[in-house]
């Protein structure tokens, strides 16, 4: 029984030693990580519309019941077509907003008549983000023409999961992380158009958008 305290002392000494070693390791790791951080910014998930093939996974794979991915219309690339391949079902019967003619499964695209010019009617197509489920049907349809519809992770909804469930399932690996202060992307032709547009002083909204867009 006499050697018990000695044994305990020894054990405590070893434990102290290991604790100090652990602390030093953790400190070193922390220092290393903080040191590496440098100018680092926070990042958020975004998809690259140039790679997107509108496969529908965005609608079904997001951890949110209603996906964080929504369709965006880039008006400056839109042809304002009467026969919109993103709006109308390929087997449409008439060019009107009736249910049997629409392609969008939730009816999230609004079609507004703008003007008739030289016998051609022009319509504006606006996405109602609240109703959009990000299925990309219109994106696929529009890609046949101008491709002004494209999908984006909407950052008012995205939870910024550590591992994005859509990214895991994306067939073209179009998802990656962008700096949080420029969390959106445009298709490359759209970006060029936007850059031209901001030069005009009246387009504050274009400048707002450009400030949100990641420019590679």
């Amino acid at each position: 029984m006499n050697d018990q305290p000695v044994k305990n002392d020894r054990r405590e000494f070893i434990q102290d030693g290991l604790r100090v070693a652990g602390l030093v390791t953790l400190g070193a790791a922390g220092g290393f990580l903080v040191g590496r951080q440098g100018e680092a910014e926070e990042t958020v998930w975004q998809l690259d519309p140039n790679k997107c093939i509108a496969c529908k996974n965005c609608a079904t794979h997001c951890v949110l019941d209603e996906s964080a991915v929504k369709c965006v219309q880039f008006f400056d690339m839109c042809g304002y077509c009467d026969i919109c391949t993103g709006y109308f079902d390929p087997n449409y019967r008439e060019l009107n907003t009736a249910a049997e003619n629409q392609m969008c499964p939730t009816g999230a695209i609004r079609r507004t008549f703008i003007e008739e010019k030289a016998g051609q009617k022009f319509f504006e197509y606006t996405i109602d983000a609240d109703a959009c489920v990000g299925c990309g049907k219109c994106v696929k349809g529009c890609a046949l023409m101008n491709g002004s519809f494209y999908l984006q992770v909407s950052h008012d909804r995205c939870l910024n999961c550590n591992e994005c469930a859509i990214a895991v399932s994306c067939p073209t690996q179009a998802f990656d992380r962008l700096p949080a202060n420029r969390p959106y992307r445009l298709k490359s032709p759209a970006l060029a158009l936007l850059k031209r547009k901001v030069k005009h002083p009246s387009h504050q909204d274009a400048r707002d958008l450009l400030s949100q867009v990641y420019d590679p």
């Binding site: 909407s154 995205c158 959106y184």
Partner: peptide
């Protein structure tokens, strides 16, 4: 010009 939602 299309507008995107501000990040949360």
């Amino acid at each position: 010009t299309s507008q995107v939602a501000d990040p949360a």
